[in-house]
Write a protein that binds this DNA or RNA. Structure first.
Length: 738
DNA sequence: ATAGGGTTAG
């Protein structure tokens, strides 16, 4: 209304009241009136409608084609479907030729975005020009109404209207959308018969894109080769296909031959070929293409920049990627997401979460890609509080039932030791698929809920879903962590029979299962089945030897490992610890000097604890670097005193160095998880204490933490390098088996 | 009067 009033209220520039006096005079006033409207952008619908009504009433005599076209164009500019309807009434009243008015009205309605009205007009037409058919089909596809588009296309053929290059260049997208491969092939045949496949590059690229979407890059390439005059769009469509199907070498080759044929790449081309360079970790070509992109002036195109960013992140060149991101003027949802997920993939979780918060501050909406990446950042570092806040964001944006965000949450809660919460998320998912099931099974597995994991596995089978390699690993891990030895063996046999591809990791898990159960001979037998036994497999067997103190077998395995990997650090440490636990101190000294010669340094034992979203790091034996070390030591001493009252005795077999007994005790008291727990107790924030460790928890710490959980009446959850331990009221969820 | 290609995830 405002604009209407302004208009008649005497706007100085346009002087509308004067025009009102003039327009009885006909055409001159009409066109002046139009130029007035044209100078305005976006009038409210009600206002424009009134203006048109006024116009049409006073201009009944003005019924030439030219003027109706002009009026319709105005409606299109103003997106006024009611204006179109008014004009339609006047066309009818003035006896305007129907075969022309129909086409014009359909065209205008489509451009205003009202496909249903266009269809209504179309259905009332007796003669339809092919352009009208084509426009309708094209707009239906544009608005993702592929089904109706295909129906229109079929109707067109039954009405004996032969599709032309315009029809075909749009309809193929509808076929790929609906996976109508058979019908697509018939229409491809039609394109061949009409000679359009070869002569029209629009038809050609639509065909290439369609075959690409069907996953048939070979077919797409054959079409491309037949097209006479190839252009950017055509070749880019093929590059996209290769890139999305992971045929990255082909994508780069296609890009190179494009340059040879002097076809200029554009932002779309760069956006796709760079993804392939990233997948190939081909930083050479990646940088070369980056250069070309700058030279040809596409360095500031958002999609190309995003791909460039992704490429650098896949190649682990984090600094380069940050430089690219800084150049992006207005990063959108996708570019932020690419940055966040890439940082997580490069182990830069903290930075990823900082960027995520920046994105939120800039009011860029996250999507399920963004959220699952941010969540993965949290779960990698077991950042429970941070993760819970992101759960809040997931809910706020309505992704609670989404399988991607949901799997991220399941993984988070699983990795924070809360399989109950993981299960709650899992049960609200709108769609259960292999990946969300795998994530849930894995969460149960690492928390030692073997039965629950196996129940879910059964459900997966009952749902008719095909387990994949991650499923197999999760299920075996579940058996392994819950001491379900027989179940594990049976499942493994059935997986072998089902011809599921078993990887070294699966074998390593079984070797661990058998080995820890003391069935070392069977475990060793299993390794003979593995075609390319790797370090992990042998090390697993070796650590089982260590648990059961099988020195001879361990020495045999060690020789094998050192053949593959001379001076392997983990092996030497394991052997040294085995000698230490069997009292062979001279062999320990031998191993240590060997390590010293090779300049190997032991990976320091570390623990992390998150208090109020801040992560604190503790290193074994390091009593001074934390700013609150005094309070920590005070609390630790008191905790040890209290736990001794309840029967804690230091387990000196956990000390793998030959030293005096009191020194052994002192070294045990300085284990990183003990420091972390003492710190958490001092800070005294409520709820469970969550500790993250880089190595496995030792027997001494394990029995100490059990007692502390009783003394403090607090749950302590410890995620070590392999699994979870939930300490509650003097016992641990692992059943002392880890 | 009507037509074709792109970037992020478990």
């Amino acid at each position: 209304m405002g604009r209407y009033e302004l208009h008649y209220g005497g706007d100085r520039r346009n002087n509308a009241p004067a025009m009102r006096r003039d327009y009885n005079g006909g055409l001159i006033a009409f066109s002046r009136y139009f130029s007035f409207f044209s100078s305005r952008t976006c009038s409210p619908e009600s206002s424009i409608n009134n203006q048109f009504r006024l116009l049409c009433i006073t201009c009944d005599t003005l019924t030439t084609t030219h003027n109706f076209s002009q009026l319709l164009r105005q409606c299109i500019d103003e997106r006024s479907i009611s204006g179109i309807k008014t004009i339609q009434a006047h066309m009818l009243k003035s006896g305007f030729p129907a075969e022309i008015s129909g086409s014009k009205l359909v065209d205008a309605s489509l451009k205003c975005g009202d496909i249903d009205y266009a269809r209504q007009v179309f259905d009332g037409m007796s003669e339809r020009h092919i352009v009208t058919w084509n426009s309708l089909i094209a707009y239906l596809i544009k608005y993702r109404r592929s089904k109706e588009a295909v129906e229109m296309y079929r109707l067109m053929i039954t009405n004996n209207v032969l599709p032309d290059e315009y029809t075909l260049s749009s309809v193929f997208k509808a076929f790929s959308d609906l996976s109508l491969e058979k019908e697509a092939q018939r229409s491809h045949g039609l394109a061949v018969i009409l000679g359009l496949e070869v002569s029209n590059v629009f038809v050609g690229s639509a065909l290439v894109d369609m075959y690409v979407k069907f996953g048939k890059t070979r077919e797409a390439k054959l079409v491309l080769d037949r097209v006479e005059e190839k252009d950017v769009v055509l070749i880019t469509a093929l590059i996209v296909g290769y890139s999305q199907k992971g045929e990255d070498t082909e994508a780069v080759k296609a890009f190179q031959s494009m340059l040879v044929e002097k076809v200029q790449p554009n932002e779309y081309t760069y956006a796709s070929v760079l993804i392939s360079c990233g997948n190939l970790k081909d930083i050479g070509n990646g940088k070369l293409i980056h250069g070309l992109m700058v030279k040809s002036g596409f360095e500031s195109a958002l999609a190309s920049q995003t791909s460039l960013l992704t490429m650098y992140l896949r190649c682990s060149l984090v600094d380069d990627s940050l430089r690219v991101f800084k150049c992006i003027e207005y990063p959108n949802q996708v570019s932020w997401t690419s940055l966040i997920s890439g940082l997580v993939q490069n182990g830069r979780e903290e930075m990823a979460l900082i960027e995520f918060r920046k994105m939120m501050r800039d009011s860029i909406k996250p999507n399920s890609f963004t959220l699952s990446s941010a969540l993965r950042g949290c779960s990698n570092l077991a950042m429970f509080e941070e993760g819970r806040q992101i759960h809040g964001i997931v809910t706020k944006y309505g992704f609670d039932r989404d399988k991607y965000a949901g799997s991220g949450l399941i993984d988070l809660y699983g990795k924070c030791g809360c399989s109950d919460m993981a299960r709650l998320v899992f049960d609200t998912l709108s769609e259960v698929d292999v990946i969300s099931l795998n994530t849930m099974i894995y969460s149960y597995a690492q928390n030692g809920f073997g039965r629950e994991a196996l129940d879910l596995f059964e459900r997966m089978i009952n749902l008719g879903l095909q387990p994949n390699d991650v499923t197999v690993l999760s299920v075996l891990l579940a058996c392994n962590n819950s001491r379900l030895v027989e179940e594990g063996c049976e499942l493994f046999d059935s997986f072998r029979k089902d011809k599921i591809m078993l990887t070294n990791d699966h074998y390593a898990c079984m070797v661990d299962l058998l080995g820890r159960a003391g069935r070392l001979e069977e475990a060793e037998m299993l390794t003979t089945e593995v075609i390319n036994p790797d370090l992990v497999l042998w090390r697993t067997l070796l650590s089982a030897c260590k648990v059961h103190k099988k020195v001879e077998m361990a020495e045999r395995i060690t020789r094998k490992i050192l053949e593959i990997e001379p001076g392997d650090e983990g092996t030497l440490i394991l052997m040294s610890n085995l000698y230490a636990s069997t009292g062979k101190w001279n062999r320990v000294i031998e191993m240590k000097s060997k390590m010293k010669d090779m300049k190997l340094k032991k990976n320091p034992a570390m623990s992390w604890v998150e208090i109020n979203k801040e992560t604190h790091t503790f290193m074994a034996g390091d009593l001074f670097s934390h700013p609150n070390s005094e309070q920590i030591l005070e609390n630790l001493e008191e905790l040890i005193k209290k736990s001794k009252d309840l029967g804690y005795v230091e387990d000196k077999s956990c000390v793998f160095q030959d030293m005096e007994e009191t020194a052994k005790e002192r070294s045990l008291h300085q284990h990183s998880e003990k420091l972390a727990i003492a710190f958490a107790v001092w800070r005294n924030v409520g709820g469970s204490i969550r500790i993250l460790k880089n190595l496995r928890v030792c027997v001494d710490c394990h029995s100490w933490i059990k007692i502390v959980s009783r003394v403090m009446k607090r749950e302590i959850i410890c995620r070590d390098s392999k699994r979870f331990h939930h300490f509650r009221d003097g016992s641990c969820s692992c059943g002392d088996y880890w």
